[in-house]
Design a protein around this nucleic acid. Structure first.
Lengths: 184, 184
DNA sequence: CAGTTTCCTGACCGTTCGGTCAGTTAGCGT
DNA sequence: ACGCTAACTGACCGAACGGTCAGGAAACTG
C-alpha cells in the first residue's frame, strides 16, 4: 500500500483509539515508519489528516441518508434502511466512534462540524414523527452504544468474527431500540 | 464553594466534554478565575485532578457492585440493582462518560486503570451466566449508549428535566437491553 | 544525457504543555 | 505586636507540540 493510504489508515486507528488531541504527528510517523516531515508532505496539516480519515465515511452516510429524508421511518423501507445503517456501522466503526465520541470536543474543525451536523440530521430522521422523550433517548443509546460497543470488542471480550453473527445480533438490537412501535 | 471543590467540578466538566488530553491546566485555571500555579497548589498534578474528578464515582460504583457479585443477575434482586445502576448513571453521568469514552486511551494512569477494571467487572457481572454474543453486545450498547446519551442531551435536543421522566425511560430501556430473558 | 517530479529527510521555529520554585498577601491564634 | 499557615502568584524550566523550509535521493521523461 502507498504511504499515503498507510498514513490515513494509521491515523484513523490512532485518532479513534487514543483520541485526536492525544495523537501526535510524531506518533503517526513512527507507526508508519516515516519522519514527521513526511507525514506533513502527504497531508498538509493534522486537520487534513483527520479530514482524510473520517471524511469519506461522513460522505457515505450522507449518501445513504439523503434520499430517505422526508419519508417516515416507520414506512416499509424501514428494515432496508436499518440494514444499510448497521452495515455502515460495521464497515466504518472507527470513523463513527471518532465523530460520536470526539465530535463535541473538536468543534471549529470543519470536518467535525460536518460530522456533528450529520448526527443531528440522523437524530431528526429517527425522531421525525411524534418522538417522545423515551424514543429520543432510544436513538441516542442506539447510536452511542453501537459506536462504543463496536470499538471496545477486545476489552469486553467480544469476538468480532464471525461477522455474520455480529451483524445479525446488531440488527436485532438496533431494530428493537429504534422501532417506533414496540410490543409492550 | 471552596476553590478546591470548584476546581474539581470545573475539571470534571472540562475533562468530560473536551477530553482529558485536550484540557490544559491553563484552561481550568481561567474557568476557575485562578492562575495555573494555584491549580497546582490545590492538586499536585493534572493526574491528581483527574483522580479527584472521577475517583469518587468509581469508588461508589464498586460499593454498589461488590456485594452483588457472585449472585445471579437474573435473581429477584435484579430490578433493585438496575434501579441503583440507573440512579448511579444519572448522578455520575459526567464521570461515567469520561472513563467509558476516554478509558481506553488513557491507560497507565492509575485512576483510569481502576475505571477500566470496574468496567470489566461490570461486564462479567452482567454476563455471568450463559452470555451469548448478543447478550454481551447488549451490555456494551447499554453502557456506552447511556453514557453517550446522558452527555449529549443538548446536542440531541433532549430535555434533562423532568428528572423523573428521564429516569423512568432510562429504566425501561436499560431493563429491555439487559434482561437476559426477553420476549421473542 | 539533462530536467523534472515524487518522496522523503533533518534542522529549525514559535507556541504551549505540565510542573517547580521563591516570594507575596491575608487572616488568625497568642 | 508577633509568628504561623493557607491561598495564591509570576517567572521560569525542559519537553513536546504542529508546522516551515531547503535540500537530498531516486525514478520517470524528453
Amino acid at each position: 500500500m502507498s504511504s499515503h493510504d498507510d498514513l490515513r489508515t494509521i491515523a484513523l486507528a490512532e485518532f479513534a483509539t487514543a483520541g485526536y488531541s492525544a495523537t501526535s504527528l510524531q506518533r503517526i510517523a513512527e507507526l508508519a515508519g516515516l519522519s514527521k516531515s513526511s507525514v506533513l508532505y502527504h497531508y498538509s496539516s493534522k486537520e487534513a489528516l483527520l479530514e482524510a480519515a473520517i471524511g469519506p465515511a461522513i460522505d457515505r452516510m450522507v449518501e445513504i441518508l439523503t434520499p430517505l429524508e422526508g419519508f417516515d421511518f416507520s414506512d416499509e423501507g424501514r428494515t432496508a434502511f436499518l440494514e444499510a445503517f448497521v452495515d455502515f456501522l460495521l464497515e466504518h466503526r472507527l470513523e463513527v466512534h471518532m465523530f460520536i465520541n470526539q465530535g463535541p470536543s473538536l468543534v471549529d474543525v470543519p470536518v467535525i462540524d460536518r460530522a456533528n451536523a450529520l448526527v443531528m440530521r440522523l437524530a431528526e430522521f429517527f425522531s421525525a414523527n411524534s418522538a417522545s422523550l423515551e424514543e429520543k433517548m432510544r436513538f441516542g443509546i442506539a447510536l452511542g452504544g453501537a459506536a462504543y460497543m463496536l470499538c471496545t470488542v477486545q476489552t469486553l471480550d467480544l469476538p468480532v468474527e464471525p461477522r455474520d453473527e455480529t451483524r445479525a445480533a446488531l440488527l436485532s438490537i438496533m431494530g428493537q431500540l429504534l422501532s417506533p412501535i414496540r410490543i409492550r
